[in-house]
């Protein structure tokens, strides 16, 4: 059994003739939480999508628990960007969370009482049990984000890939979500979070990937999250400790 949850080597993704990700590498050990940071258009979302096979990879070796993603995908939970779906879709919070179980359920089977209980538990974990039957367009941004998180939790995955789970979220929700993610890490899971706020990196993450098409630096926050690396990533004078972009 390997201690590495996710291993990306030399990942290159291009749209037409323009690389959006160039020779990026990242190693994510189990029991850690990794922040992926970089300016807009740095390829953060693309990196997650490359792991999930959602974008074609020009070059690169991607291993999940020492194996291909296809073989290990039931151990991977994905939280897409909140803005990537139509929240006016006719469904409620519980139903969205149940979607996390569709893969395990298999073809033709509908979720039953057991699955409902799992989904309710996940909603309880994210503090959303009171909103089970609420139409999803009637949830605030932070609540929608928590529903997405519950959907990933219910998968009971070992590796979580999350695209901006703190986007548009109020301070209380942000604390709740981070507490949950730290619990996941403490339970031995690996968590990768695309993040945009430089202020909170040191508090939130064990490890960090600074990305701007290429991996500028990656590793433990203490050694990697330096002024020099952050400036090299964002292309301007940046201070890792105090300044946000």
């Amino acid at each position: 059994m390997t201690d590495v949850a996710l291993d990306i080597q030399g990942c290159t993704v291009a749209y037409h003739d323009t690389p959006v990700l160039w020779d990026a590498s990242l190693t994510v050990p189990r029991g850690t939480i990794t922040g992926v940071l970089g300016p807009n258009g740095a390829g953060k979302t693309t990196l997650l999508k490359a792991v999930l096979g959602l974008v074609p990879v020009a070059s690169g070796r991607i291993q999940v628990f020492g194996d291909t993603y296809a073989a290990q995908q039931d151990r991977v939970g994905y939280v897409p960007q909140r803005g990537s779906v139509d929240w006016d879709f006719p469904t409620n919070a519980l139903d969205v969370v149940l979607m996390g179980l569709y893969g395990q359920l298999g073809w033709f089977r509908r979720p039953g009482a057991h699955e409902n209980e799992q989904a309710r538990q996940a909603l309880r974990d994210v503090g959303m049990l009171d909103y089970t039957d609420r139409q999803i367009s009637q949830l605030s941004g932070g609540q929608q984000q928590r529903v997405f998180l519950a959907r990933a939790l219910v998968q009971d995955a070992d590796l979580y890939l999350m695209d901006e789970p703190l986007q548009g979220v109020d301070a209380t929700t942000e604390r709740t979500i981070m507490q949950l993610l730290h619990n996941l890490r403490d339970a031995g899971k690996a968590v990768v979070v695309v993040h945009h706020d430089l202020h909170t990196v040191a508090d939130y993450f064990d490890r960090v990937l600074l990305l701007n098409k290429r991996a500028v630096a990656s590793g433990p926050v203490a050694s990697v999250f330096t002024d020099a690396n952050v400036s090299a990533t964002y292309g301007t004078e940046m201070r890792a400790s105090t300044e946000a972009h």
């Binding site: 030399g10 290159t12 291009a14 037409h16 003739d17 690389p19 020779d23 020009a58 070059s59």
Partner: peptide
């Protein structure tokens, strides 16, 4: 073109 680019990227890498 995509094939050419992929080959070119490999060479550059």
């Amino acid at each position: 073109r995509q094939h050419r680019h992929t080959a070119r990227f490999s060479a550059q890498l």
